[in-house]
Design a protein around this nucleic acid. Structure first.
Length: 738
DNA sequence: AAGGGCGCACTTTTGA
DNA sequence: TCAAAAGTGCGC
């Protein structure tokens, strides 16, 4: 049954409140039971009332009513969804196994193999295997005559469907009526009865379109296991009852190596077999293709190729979200859609419940910034044989070590013995050494579990199923552990504490500063440092000494050699460098070449320059390479695709205060009927013409090769990308041009 | 019905 | 003409 907690302002009031809630049936008609319980509020035991109701919808109203009558009291957990309540109370495993006694029953209208009535309370059991799940991949083809397709008037042209058991269908809309297509979709889903439904950007594109079209055609999109229709739910995802509907672009979002996150790019990066079976075809090219036979065939083949890639992507990546779901207690479809902060939040809620803590509501606090990490100015130039040392999980380790937590924070002015607290340098916050704070309790569990898993991993070979399960579980633990620091500093967090985050950053700075000083004092050259890492000359004896020193000095926080560069190049800029790894590959950090907002031609030329420099130490050759690119550009031989610049719309178009090129292009496209939303990338090319740059930016598909402003690309793309590196070697700009 | 933190580099626009 | 502000995307 739904319940919430009420903590009166004065402890003595508890009986009075209890009496009121029990007797006043007029104000609290749906109260079922009231009991007194001992819970903890930030570690302090408190007597609270547990008020059980007959409906979940009245809890918030009753909580406010109590506040109105008694004033000053606080209520807790009145906004919990019942499903969350159930999972937390029974400590059930999400996306895992739980056990209970059952009786077989018959139910109507629910598409399941068998139905049982639980006769005992379910209990989580230690069983790790994942059953094989039926997967359905969906890809919708929309075509708009002028601009983006509009669900109010444009029918859904086709729908590619493919299941893990190999059934496939392309549902086509002939003429203007897609009602038959929609009915076919509902039938296909129900016949194949998938556990997972997957797509790419499906919550933003495919489902929205399907739902809208179903409304227009007055068709019930009964694809849930209870024949219900899809509905929008938390974290902006689309929920299908009884099935997990996953938008795989959420999974792809965490792959930082892929800059433009199209299905095509993700599939290629992951080397999926299906990667070459399709190409993402831009919206504006579709209308032309759709209206001629070979084009239409291509579009349909492509749609099926995308569905097959979605299926493969789901099968190859689903294990990690499953482990993340188990760890955080969020259902699979929620955990995929939820941002990092909400994953941590859910994990903490369950842990808090486990130790009897009252769970505060999420409420947006006023936002205060604080000083963060330390970055050292690099020593510019080429360096041979450089080791990168770093502290493993520095912030969580420090939060645990110094017991940084809202419940251990000593208020300013509060008198406590100096030796009973950790005094944090620079920021002067104090934290009690005991008892263990909430973050310490939670982080200790996370860190211990992870160490255990790492050990267990060694017992299996890398190709075994067990290994993969354990590795994904370890990754889930890592993600949640490392996000705790950011979570603590997030104003929307339930356990938000600027002091905690600020202190973690401060002890982080202290730790790395001490280590830098020590490294220098024992003769290591420190070339660069950022947050928790140290780039030093690779002298193993001294590094071992530093490691031993750190082990003693920081007890429990270890330095490891993360990697060694045979050769590394720094400019004067922080957070930007490139290194040569022993296997001959280049590691590029922060430079234009890894940024998504530079043209391909600029990135290419920088990559080539870096190669010449790092592999052959030859600025002269590098200059030749750039000159070659300059000639190619001038001759008009560089295709438009390499000149396209992409920038993201980070807010609604009307909120922009500045006429930036990508914003202007977005405005133009929207006027022409294209749909653009926050998060979309705008692709443009700079063309010849007078005036500011924003006047010369054109949508890349509307540009003819002769229009391109080659001078812009020479001066503002190729030159800066190349000179960023070459200026370190004294190369002059004019050497790049004739 | 939502999206962890700060530090830094860099381009382009804006406004004096 | 120039510094500040806006905007983006990166590193950790």
């Amino acid at each position: 049954m739904p319940y919430f907690y009420y903590l009166p302002e004065e402890e003595g009031d508890i009986e009075r409140v209890k009496e009121e809630v029990t007797r006043n049936r007029k104000a609290f008609p749906k109260v079922l039971d009231v009991t007194t319980e001992t819970k903890k509020l930030l570690g302090h035991p408190r007597q609270v009332l547990k008020i059980t109701c007959t409906g979940s919808d009245v809890r918030s109203a009753y909580a406010s009513e109590l506040n109105r009558i008694f004033g000053g009291g606080r209520s807790f957990e009145q906004d919990f969804r019942l499903s969350v309540r159930y999972i937390a109370d029974l400590m059930l495993t999400t996306s895992g196994w739980n056990e209970c006694d059952v009786e077989k029953i018959k139910v109507e209208g629910i598409a399941v193999d068998r139905a049982y009535l639980a006769t005992t309370v379910p209990k989580s059991i230690a069983q790790d295997d994942t059953p094989s799940l039926r997967v359905l991949a969906v890809n919708a083809l929309t075509v708009g005559e002028k601009g983006s397709a509009r669900p109010e008037s444009d029918p859904l042209r086709a729908l590619a469907l493919l299941t893990s058991s190999g059934k496939s269908a392309i549902l086509l809309c002939e003429g203007g009526d897609d009602a038959e297509l929609l009915r076919g979709f509902v039938e296909f889903v129900n016949r194949s009865d998938p556990d997972l439904i997957v797509g790419f950007e499906s919550s933003k594109v495919d489902w929205l379109y399907l739902i809208q079209r179903a409304k227009v055609c007055d068709i019930k999109l009964s694809v849930g296991r209870d024949a219900s229709e899809p509905h929008t739910s938390v974290y902006g995802h689309i929920s299908v009852t009884g099935r997990a509907n996953l938008d795989l672009s959420d999974v792809a979002g965490s792959i930082t190596e892929v800059k433009v996150k199209t299905l095509e790019n993700v599939a290629k990066y992951l080397q999926l077999h299906s990667a070459n079976k399709f190409k993402v075809i831009d919206e504006w090219d579709r209308f032309g293709l759709w209206n001629e036979e070979s084009g239409r065939r291509k579009l349909l083949e492509n749609a099926m190729g995308m569905a097959s890639s979605c299926l493969e992507l789901a099968q190859s990546t689903i294990d990690f979200p499953i482990q993340l779901s188990r760890l955080t207690g969020l259902p699979l479809d929620h955990v995929v859609a939820a941002a990092v902060g909400f994953r941590v939040d859910s994990y903490l809620v369950i842990q808090a419940h486990r130790i009897g803590e009252l769970i505060p509501a999420r409420n947006d606090q006023p936002y205060l910034t604080y000083q963060g990490a330390l970055v050292l100015e690099p020593k510019p130039g080429l360096h041979d044989d450089v080791a990168v040392l770093d502290f493993a999980s520095m912030y969580p380790a420090l939060m645990k070590k110094y017991n940084l937590s809202p419940d251990t924070l000593v208020q300013p002015g509060e008198h406590v013995p100096d030796d009973s607290v950790f005094l944090i340098p620079q920021v002067d916050h104090r934290f009690r050494k005991s008892p263990d704070g909430f973050y310490r309790i939670v982080l200790a569990v996370l860190i211990r579990e992870r160490a255990l898993l790492a050990k267990k991993l060694g017992e299996y070979t890398a190709d075994s199923t067990e290994f993969r399960v354990l590795r994904d579980r370890e990754r889930a633990l890592k993600v949640v552990t490392n996000a705790c620091y950011g979570y603590a500093g997030w104003a929307g967090a339930r356990w938000y504490s600027r002091e905690v985050a600020e202190s973690a950053a401060a002890v982080g700075r202290e730790t790395i500063t001490k280590t830098i000083d020590k490294a220098r004092s024992i003769g290591l050259t420190v070339i660069y440092s950022d947050t928790d890492s140290l780039f030093v000359t690779n002298e193993t004896a001294s590094i071992d000494r530093l490691r031993d020193w750190a082990k003693k000095e920081f007890e429990g926080i270890e330095i490891r050699v993360e990697r060694v560069y045979s050769r590394i190049l720094f400019t004067e800029a922080m957070k930007r460098y490139a290194g040569l790894l022993p296997d001959g590959s280049l590691d590029k950090v922060g430079l234009e070449v890894v940024r998504g907002d530079w043209s391909e031609i600029a990135r290419q030329v920088q990559e080539q320059v870096l190669r010449e420099i790092l592999l052959h130490k030859s600025p002269e050759q590098a200059v030749e390479v750039v000159r070659g690119t300059v000639r190619r550009l001038r001759s008009g031989a560089v295709p438009l695709a390499e000149l396209t610049i992409r920038k993201t719309l980070t807010k609604p178009i009307e909120r922009y205060k500045v006429r930036a090129p990508h914003v202007e292009v977005a405005r133009k496209l929207m006027k022409e009927g294209w749909k653009l939303a926050v998060g979309d990338k705008v692709a443009y090319v700079i063309v010849k013409g007078p005036g500011s740059l924003f006047k010369k930016a054109k949508p890349y598909n509307q540009v003819k090769p002769d229009d391109v402003d080659i001078e812009y690309y020479l001066d503002n793309q190729v030159k800066p990308a190349a000179m960023r590196i070459l200026e370190v070697f004294g190369v002059q700009e004019r050497q790049l041009f004739d």
